[in-house]
């Protein structure tokens, strides 16, 4: 009987240790979610990528301008895959664990494939 009791106690402890943190991480995240509701922006805006590091100025200067198809204004396509340089860029996948936002279980990293 003592043995049975021990097994029951152990299983309860195991279940609680697995389930409680996982459940609370989800519910806490949801409870603490930003109150700002996501609103669908029905008025799409024209997007202009800037080609230099002063992107804000470049963006404002070019925003709303007609695109005539040439790149005389210094606009060019940036290859976005140079993760290493920008201090303000996010850490690429695989270099750090995913954020603890309650969506990813156990910190398992997503597996991505892009064609």
């Amino acid at each position: 009987m003592n043995k049975t009791l021990m097994i029951l106690v152990a299983s309860t402890a195991l279940t609680a240790s697995v389930a409680v943190p996982a459940w609370s991480s989800i519910t806490n995240r949801v409870d603490g979610a930003s109150s700002a509701a996501i609103e669908s922006d029905t008025q799409s805006q024209h997007m202009m990528f800037a080609s230099n590091d002063d992107d804000d100025d470049g963006y404002r200067r070019r925003y709303g301008a007609d695109h005539d198809g040439d790149d005389d204004h210094g606009r060019g396509h940036d290859d976005d895959d140079d993760y290493g340089g920008g201090a303000n860029n996010a850490a690429p996948a695989g270099t750090v664990a995913p954020p603890e936002n309650g969506l990813f279980q156990g910190g398992v990293r997503p597996i991505v494939r892009t064609n």
Partner: peptide
């Protein structure tokens, strides 16, 4: 269910200024 942001699953594109 309230429309509040919970979290991001994936971001395709590495430059934060965009």
């Amino acid at each position: 269910s309230s429309g509040a942001y919970v979290g991001t699953l994936w971001m395709a594109g590495g430059r934060s200024r965009y």
